[in-house]
């Protein structure tokens, strides 16, 4: 096996800027890389003959293998497995994919992808894509089925692009957060109803992630047991009062 180091070539007006940009790109500090100056650049005379500085940063650790220069030339739609880059790539590919999908659906909205800091580890980044705009209920759909479809297709496309499973979560106008809260409230109301009436209470059919939220919300309710019954997409949570 040949050892390939991660390298990044940066071009900027000065050597200092090129190094700083390169380190920011890699998400590393100066101690993590060796710097080779390829071209000191030249200020030229009155802008004539001006040349930018070019530096090559080589990452010192040996675990990273990536083709050099990729990122500088093609920042979008290119997967570069080098360390800091793959997170940036996942973010930009996710954002571009969702943007492309909704545009082709005839929906115009703002799309912003960010790293989910809480849910990410260095090797396993998780990205949140937020879609904001007006009149986006058409993108959510009944029981959020359109939102789930959009998220599913996005994960497939991004996953194919980067070569492995992608953790991409899409939200539209804060829908998921609001839905989570209202599901919790609903679960608690239905649980009380089950206890008071002594009868099972069936909730509306829900997708798996929402059923999970209901089960979680009632986990500490000792007077009831919850279970899911039926087949998708009609699978639903039933709240059973404990005898």
């Amino acid at each position: 096996m040949t050892e390939e180091r991660t390298t990044l070539e940066m071009i900027a007006p000065t050597i200092e800027e090129a190094i700083a940009d390169g380190l920011a790109e890699l998400g590393l500090s100066k101690d993590d890389v060796t710097v080779e100056t390829l071209d000191e650049g030249s200020k030229g005379i009155l802008g004539i003959g001006q040349r930018h500085a070019r530096v090559l940063l080589t990452v010192k650790s040996e675990e990273d293998k990536a083709p050099p220069e990729k990122r500088a030339q093609a920042p979008r739609r290119t997967y570069d497995a080098s360390n800091g880059d793959h997170v940036e790539n996942l973010i930009s590919i996710s954002e571009a994919t969702v943007g492309e999908l909704i545009e082709k659906m005839g929906v115009f909205a703002e799309v912003k992808a960010t790293l989910d800091e809480e849910d990410s580890s260095p090797d396993y980044p998780s990205v949140n894509v937020d879609i904001t705009g007006s009149d986006l209920s058409v993108l959510i759909g009944r029981r959020a089925e359109t939102l789930e479809a959009l998220q599913y297709i996005t994960r497939l496309i991004v996953g194919k692009e980067i070569g492995h499973g992608a953790r991409v979560n899409i939200d539209i106008e804060g829908y998921r957060a609001r839905r989570e809260q209202s599901l919790k409230t609903l679960a608690e109301q239905m649980a009380k109803q089950a206890i008071n009436s002594g009868r099972k209470q069936a909730l509306e059919p829900m997708p798996a992630n929402e059923r999970r939220l209901v089960h979680m919300a009632l986990r500490d309710f000792e007077e009831v047991t919850t279970e899911s019954v039926g087949e998708d997409p009609r699978r639903k949570v039933v709240i059973i009062p404990n005898a």
Binding site: L101, M105, V107, V138, E145, T146, A149, Y152
Partner: peptide, 18 residues
């Protein structure tokens, strides 16, 4: 048919807009 069904849902949005 999961991918096909997801495509149908997104196509439906496109049709409603078109």
């Amino acid at each position: 048919g999961k991918v096909a069904n997801a495509m149908r849902l997104l196509l439906r949005v496109a049709a409603s807009r078109d």
